[in-house]
């Protein structure tokens, strides 16, 4: 049974593309057939983060419009056999993507993959709505920061009203992926805590990804952090999140939250 997941956030720059690539690679590593789809028409980047930027021949719009067959457009990852990418188009015409076109492509992908991850563009415009339209569930990527939390709240509202599932009166499952989290700052009361964000958005937590230098290193190299057996906290957090997405129960740890005794006491006070 195939699952279509939209990775969305409202706000830009919070880590949608990084998260799509990292979760996609982690799922594929466990043997699942995975396709990551870039919906950011005009500003594609998933190809770059996946290290496949020089292999893009056909893209999502070509397939949606029938100019290319899906197998021609799919880029198979060279490192993980079961991982594929469908790139976004560089065209400036955002209206080139239609609902019918997307429906057709998603339908075909469902027949070929266990997991289809749709990397949504930022904003709440057409592209973002099309990315979520045919999804079975959503991963809402949020930074512990006021503007990101506000935009996530908007996106949750749209997931509950503008998706096909919502219109059919069915449940749209949404899970929160808290990225760029700094446990130290949160414990000192300088950053919204995990509990704060969960309390405000009231959707279940998929994972907490710590702020990490390794993320930049991974995108520099075009190798998602979950790909090369990295032992970094962020990589492990993405792996845990991916396993939770597959339905496993894995205890939630707040990465990097190891404090000295004194810091702990003072941290609690501030939080």
């Amino acid at each position: 049974m195939s699952k279509v997941v939209v990775v969305t956030s409202g706000k830009g720059g919070v880590g949608k593309t990084t998260s799509t690539a990292s979760i996609g690679a982690a799922l594929a590593k466990s043997g699942k057939r995975v396709c990551v789809v870039d919906f950011d028409v005009g500003l594609r980047n998933l190809d770059l983060v996946m290290g496949a930027e020089r292999r893009v021949v056909y893209d999502l719009i070509n397939v949606a419009q029938g100019d290319a067959k899906l197998p021609q457009a799919l880029i198979r990852d060279k490192r993980i056999e079961t991982l594929s990418l469908l790139a976004a188009s560089q065209t400036r015409d955002k209206d080139a993507l239609t609902e019918q076109g997307v429906e057709k492509v998603i339908g075909e992908l469902r027949g070929m993959f266990d997991w289809v991850l749709c990397d949504s563009p930022a904003g709440i415009e057409r592209g973002a709505l099309l990315a979520m339209r045919f999804a079975d569930e959503a991963v809402v990527v949020t930074n512990p920061e006021v503007s990101s939390v506000r935009d996530s709240d908007r996106i949750i509202g749209l997931l509950d009203s503008k998706t096909l599932r919502a219109e059919q009166g069915l449940r749209m499952d949404k899970q929160l992926l808290l990225t760029r989290f700094d446990a130290g700052r949160a414990s000192r009361g300088e950053m919204l805590s995990v509990a704060d964000v969960l309390d405000i958005l009231s959707i279940p937590l998929l994972g907490i990804i710590p702020e990490s230098e390794d993320i930049l290193r991974a995108s520099n190299l075009g190798a998602p952090i979950t790909m090369n057996g990295s032992t970094s906290l962020a990589g492990r957090a993405y792996e845990d999140a991916s396993r939770r997405l597959m339905g496993e129960t894995i205890p939630m740890v707040i990465p990097g939250e190891k404090k000295s005794f004194l810091n702990r006491i003072l941290g609690r006070r501030a939080a």
Partner: peptide
């Protein structure tokens, strides 16, 4: 004390309002 409690409170007020109007 930290600024996070302020952020939290501002968000709660704002979102309570926006959820009604939107």
């Amino acid at each position: 004390r930290g600024t996070a409690p302020v952020a939290r409170e501002r968000l709660q007020i704002l979102l309570a309002h926006e959820r009604i109007t939107l």
